[in-house]
Design a protein around this nucleic acid. Structure first.
Length: 911
RNA sequence: GCACGCUUAGCUCAGUUGGUAGAGCGCUUCGUUUACACCGAAGAUGCCGGGGGUUCGAGUCCCUCAGCGUGCACCA
């Protein structure tokens, strides 16, 4: 084994071996009797390559996967990719435009452009899959899925048709978000709100119009059909219900304006009166629908076209102008006609397309929508109800079918989002995506009722039909992900075995996009929740707190980090220091630290393998071994560690688990126990070190699979580590040897009562050693200089005598060691008082330094004593605090006072 | 406007039923002794954002204020 662990030398081969072993596949015969555990990998978009966020997700999922697999589950981690409809088409079009093709859609036409996009997507897909392998992710490649492959396409059609037949999908003329640049609709969630300064214009339609209105978009007023006021607003109350004929507005347009009442109008904003443009505002459109329902309809006049220019309805003077040109022109006209009152500067949020980047226009269009409020036939519930139920009472009021959210606060955020949910527009005018499975009779063939055909498969007389040219929102297919990947709509064994899936993790930024849609689709179509637990991770940011992004120029390529530091270091650095739902910063020093840790584990193993005869089978310590104090101490800690790591991982405390492992491995095992083993020889050491090394390799394996598997091989193990079982633990190593099943019950039990003593006694030895080192250091005694030590050990005499070799050898620089129960004070010696033990170091006293050192300790003790006395003087504390706490306080105070007294006496004699 | 989060050591962050404040990095001093300088030993640094309350006891629970950040809605 080399001095330094070289990740590049091993990683590729190991991944290949794992893959070939078949252990990634839950169908492996060795797993046949196991309970299932499943994770569906959130499919990365085929728009590019993996970034750090994906690397984080892969780390989290693979830790869970390996952990569950070692704990005896039949684990399916199913990999996949997402065609990402708009995102991919937008990306490829952008590239083509950069290559000089002005309008790719026009120049290539549907088929050829799709071919270009497919080529790009396939390319990107294969890169992504390679990167997932690089991350060490132990997923089942035999079940690889793609949202746009045949099986998933079938599921999409099936879902659409079922929803259509249940009346949950309808075709309607409604106001939608329209990206002029992308020439497509977008759902509300695909908008990114950008704040920018705008002007609020105040004016009247005509001189004698009774109300002044305020708007940031005067040009849309050419399509106004009403003015809305708050019904409580006294200023306007008398006008409600009246209709005004406006002639020649903006030079050439006639308007019919009805004054309507709407509670959502804010009296304080602007003039408290709002010009209603049903065609170009989602809110106004709602008023339009409300009026229609009240049978007091108002008009709907689209004045902006899909090209972003004013339509014929805007009048001859405006037709063909862009929105901005029209705005200027109308404001000009208002000023000329003395209708203009004033303008104000305000900040405004405008919706932009997340993919095309342009400002989105609201305009009315005939589109396909999912009705989230309609009662589902036979269920007495709407889709909204289903989405709500899944996280509250449980699906069908079954607590077993409840999605548990980590961290909990996201539950409220989710429910809040559901409350504000509007009908979901699912049709898109782009070409890359699942074609809507709807056919219209073509001109050659007019069936009697002009009926449309909606079906999973095309109509048999295809020549008479024309398929809807639109495609589906990408989230329609990804909403099916947890079960479309398992063979749905067929009733497959996989579906029965692995659904609902066990765990899902995702970034909180896609909470509404994805989680809600998966819940919607799954509860409606499969009658099950999609996953039992969902975990939200935060966003990774750079060292200054900025999000990583290509446009900001701070993006980091995970492959470069792997190249430089290794996959294990990357994985460890990504999950250390993170907490559920909170953002985390990621920077080079963190990776270095992780790399150092990996190397430390490598060297610990290298040392043990090189110096001891390790058992090469899975060794269990027997009860007959004669163990030293240090042996007991470390083995006891190891017992605790095993269940604490398990507990933490079961509760998704990834960072905490890794931190505990690090502390045990480095601080307890390497810095203390291995150092002890250099002096404390016994024939048991081979077995004990073997047991500890084997155990920590297993515990580390989910986090850093490559280095642990490599060491495992170096140890000469026959089977691979990936297939090993999680180390079992007992509450009491030397007592009942009962395996502990319920980890939860053990929380708070830090150690078994019997072994507590061993632990504390070794802590006493550690304490003595540290105190001696400290005194030497404070006295600046040269490390090579040996001193004589005398210890007055009181009742601990036997204990300390038994550990004399350790005290002498563990870098304390003690030549001669004398241990007595008690004795006379020794002059001209360094004096150390620890709890009930006194130590003299003879032959190296520097009175000034000694005085300084002891005075410092006295000061510390006095502080402690003061606070301790304060507590114990408080009668209420004595009366009300639990007895155990009070006794502990008393004991501590006694020890401190004892120590203080000794130190004070000592310091008296120093000059 | 509504909601949520954050504020703890120089930096980045932990801190699970309330019981003497923790880690990593950085810093200081010392050090190449049978793994590791990607190392070891010893150390310094905290009114746990301010104020109030509950409690014998608050970083932890409640109220309030401030600063920062995020989401949602409005934005006419």
């Amino acid at each position: 084994m080399d001095k330094v662990y070289n990740s590049k030398q091993f990683e590729e081969d190991i991944y290949k071996k794992w893959e070939e072993s078949g252990f990634f596949n839950p169908d492996h015969p060795d797993y046949s009797k196991r309970d299932p555990y499943s994770i569906m990998m959130p499919p990365p978009n085929v728009t590019g390559v993996l970034h750090l966020g994906h690397a984080l997700e892969n780390s989290l999922m693979d830790i869970m996967t390996r952990f569950q697999r070692m704990n005896g589950k039949k684990v399916l981690l199913l990999p996949g990719t997402d065609h990402a409809a708009v995102a991919t088409q937008a990306k490829v079009e952008k590239i083509l435009v950069e290559q000089g093709i002005k309008n790719p859609r026009q120049e290539f036409g549907r088929e050829k452009l799709l071919e270009k996009i497919r080529e790009y997507a396939e390319n990107s897909k294969s890169t992504i899959l390679k990167q997932i392998r690089k991350m060490g992710t132990s997923c089942d490649w035999s079940r690889l899925a793609y949202t746009f492959d045949e099986a998933r396409g079938r599921a999409v059609n099936e879902a659409f048709v079922k929803m259509y037949n249940d009346g949950l999908i309808y075709r309607g003329y409604r106001v939608v978000n329209w990206s002029v640049k992308g020439q497509s609709t977008a759902s509300d969630d695909e908008l990114v709100h950008v704040e920018r300064p705008a002007k609020l214009y105040y004016f009247k339609y005509t001189k004698d119009f009774p109300v002044t209105i305020a708007t940031t978009r005067p040009e849309t007023k050419l399509g106004d059909t009403a003015v809305a006021v708050n019904p409580k607003d006294k200023r306007y109350k008398s006008l409600i219900g009246k209709t005004f004929e406006i002639e020649n507005f903006g030079n050439g347009v006639n308007l019919k304006i009805k004054i309507i009442a709407d509670e959502n109008v804010e009296m304080e904003f602007g003039t408290g009166a709002l010009g209603v443009t049903p065609a170009h505002s989602a809110v106004d459109f709602e008023m339009y629908e409300k009026q229609k329902a009240k049978e007091d309809p108002i008009g709907l006049i689209p004045v902006i076209g899909e090209d972003g220019r004013m339509t014929e309805n805007a009048g001859k003077n405006y037709e063909g102008l862009t929105v901005l040109e029209a705005r200027e022109k109308l404001v000009q006209w208002l000023k000329e006609n003395n209708l203009f009152e004033k303008e104000e500067d305000i900040m405004q949020n405008v919706g932009t397309s997340d993919r095309f980047g342009d400002i989105v226009e609201a305009l009315p269009k005939t589109q396909w929508f999912v009705n989230v409020n309609k009662i589902i036939p036979g269920r007495n519930k709407s889709l909204k109800d289903l989405m709500r139920e899944a996280v509250t009472t449980g699906h069908r009021n079954n607590p077993e079918q409840k999605v548990k959210i980590t961290p909990e606060r996201f539950e409220r955020i989710y429910l809040n989002w559901i409350d504000n949910l509007r009908d979901w527009c699912v049709s898109r005018q782009i070409w890359w995506g699942h074609r809507i499975p709807v056919w219209y009779p073509n001109s050659k063939f007019q069936n009697k009722e002009n009926k449309i055909y909606v079906g999973v498969n095309p109509p048999s007389d295809l020549e008479n039909w024309e398929q809807d040219s639109d495609t589906l929102d990408t989230w329609f297919s990804s909403g099916l992900w947890t079960f479309s990947t398992l063979g749905w709509p067929n009733e497959t064994v996989d579906l029965k075995t692995f659904h609902p899936t066990s765990w899902m993790q995702m970034g909180y930024e896609i909470l509404p996009f994805w989680m809600a849609r998966m819940i919607l689709m799954s509860t409606y179509l499969v009658d099950e929740i999609p996953f039992r637990d969902v975990y939200f991770h935060g966003i990774l940011r750079d060292e200054t707190g900025k999000k990583f992004s290509k446009s900001a120029g701070n993006s980091v390529d995970p492959l470069e980090i792997i190249e430089k530091y290794g996959t294990d270091a990357l994985r460890f650095s990504l999950i250390s220091g993170i907490t559920p739902g909170n953002d985390a910063r990621f920077y080079e020093e963190k990776i270095e630290g992780a790399r150092n840790l990996v190397n430390k584990i490598w060297n610990i193993s290298r040392y043990i393998i090189g110096n001891y005869q390790l058992p090469i089978t899975n060794y269990q310590l027997d009860n007959n071994l004669i163990l030293s104090l240090a042996d007991n101490w470390i083995l006891d800690k190891l017992q605790n560690l095993k269940f604490e790591i398990k507990f933490d991982l079961e509760h998704y405390q990834f960072s905490q688990a890794s931190e505990k492992l690090r502390a045990f491995t480095w601080d307890d095992f390497a810095d203390w126990y291995l150092e002890v083993c250099k002096f404390e020889k016994s024939e048991n050491k081979d077995k004990i070190l073997g047991e500890i090394l084997i155990t920590i390799l297993k515990l580390w394996h989910p986090f850093i699979p490559f280095v642990t598997e490599t060491i495992w091989t170096e140890m000469g193990m026959e089977k691979m580590l990936i297939f090993e079982k999680w180390p079992s633990y007992t509450l009491d190593l030397f007592g009942g040897n009962q395996p502990v099943k319920d980890v939860d019950k053990l929380m708070g039990v830090k150690s078994s009562p019997d072994s507590l003593e061993f632990k504390n006694e070794f802590e006493i030895i550690k304490n003595i050693i540290t105190s001696i080192r400290n005194a030497r250091s404070e006295h600046k005694i040269e490390p090579t200089r040996k001193v004589k030590a005398v210890i007055y050990a009181g009742e601990k005499k036997e204990l300390i005598e038994s550990q004399a070799e350790l005290i002498k050898n563990l870098r304390t620089g003690i030549g001669e060691l004398e241990i007595k129960e008690k004795g006379e004070k020794i002059e001209n010696a360094i004096y150390i008082a620890t709890e009930k033990i006194e130590i003299y170091l003879i032959g190296a006293l520097d009175e000034a330094k000694e005085k300084q050192r002891i005075e410092k300790e006295i000061e510390n003790l006095e502080k402690l004593i003061k606070s301790g006395e304060g507590k114990l003087k408080n009668k209420e504390f004595i009366a009300k605090a639990p007895e155990a706490i009070v006794n502990k306080e008393k004991e501590k105070l006694e020890n401190w006072e004892n120590e203080l007294q000794k130190l004070k006496e000592q310091v008296k004699n120093l000059k």
